[in-house]
Simulated scan of single mutants.
Amino acid sequence: MNGIAWSVEEIYILRKFGPLESPKELTKRLPKRSISAIGTKKYMLFIKMQPVPEKDWKIGPYLYRRINGKLIAVHRLVMEKFLGRKLTKEERVHHIDCNPRNNELNNLYLCSNHSHHQRIHTKVTSFIEELFHRGAISFDKNIGTYYITEDAEYD
């Protein structure tokens, strides 16, 4: 069934059971789909979390590194190294892709203060609201998550 559009029911099954079952196990629930097709679709639909390196600590959604006995957020360390100076207490580092574990420099943006950082997040929220109203994203009350609508039209 490669190349055939996924039905709403199939997407629902992937979203509900995908985090819990392997592609091979999911073939029982999706008998018309191959293991490869299921694996590819799972990859496209779910955020793949990056493994936590042994030297870093995961506290909440962020990674921290112990330096001289203090835990320091990795995203701040990356930005400080790039700038060649320590960040001020007021400065904030924004994760462009909204993944707090992606600390690649090209994913980080320096904000002058909390207010500046908050304005960026407010804008992201307004984009999500617009996409919701356009039908590009929906919310599944059965599993409590947002998802991209497959047949959405973008203006």
Rank of each mutant, 00 (worst) to 15 (best):
D151V: 10
I11A: 02
N102K: 11
K48T: 15
H116F: 08
I4D: 12
E54F: 06
V93A: 01
D56V: 07
Y154S: 05
W6S: 13
N107E: 05
F132P: 01
F132W: 07
L110Y: 01
R29K: 15
H75F: 01
G60L: 03
Y154R: 12
H95R: 05
A5F: 07
V78S: 04
I4S: 13
P51L: 01
M79Q: 05
I13F: 03
A5M: 09
N142Q: 14
S138F: 03
T40G: 06
K70P: 05
L14K: 02
E80S: 11
I4F: 05
I72N: 06
T40D: 09
G135M: 07
P31M: 07
Y12D: 07
F82Y: 11
N102G: 11
G18E: 04
S112W: 02
H114Y: 11
K70E: 15
G60K: 05
G18L: 00
N99T: 12
A37D: 08
I13C: 02
T125M: 14
R65G: 08
E150Y: 01
Y146K: 06
V52K: 12
E54I: 09
E91D: 07
I13S: 04
L131G: 06
N68L: 11
V74S: 03
T122L: 08
P31R: 04
T125N: 12
Y146V: 06
L30A: 10
S7Q: 13
P100T: 13
R119T: 12
M79A: 10
H114Q: 14
K141M: 04
S36Y: 09
K141R: 11
H121G: 07
V78P: 00
I4L: 09
P100Q: 12
E21F: 12
G144R: 09
F132K: 14
E104F: 14
S34W: 06
N68K: 14
M79V: 14
E90T: 11
L83I: 11
L108C: 02
H121S: 09
V8P: 02
I148D: 04
I120M: 07
F17W: 12
T88Y: 14
H117D: 15
V93H: 05
I143N: 03
Y12N: 09
I4E: 10
K48V: 15
S22T: 15
K24G: 08
E21Y: 12
F132T: 15
F82V: 10
V8L: 14
S22K: 08
L14I: 05
M49S: 13
K55H: 14
E10S: 06
K141I: 04
E25I: 10
F139M: 00
R65N: 13
P53R: 05
K16E: 09
N142M: 02
D140L: 01
F82E: 15
E80K: 11
E91S: 07
K41R: 15
K55D: 10
S115W: 11
A73E: 15
G39F: 04
V124D: 10
N142F: 07
T149P: 00
I72R: 11
M44L: 13
L26W: 12
N142W: 00
K16H: 02
G3S: 13
R66V: 15
Y43L: 08
K41Y: 02
P31C: 08
P51F: 02
K89F: 09
E150C: 07
H114A: 13
A5W: 00
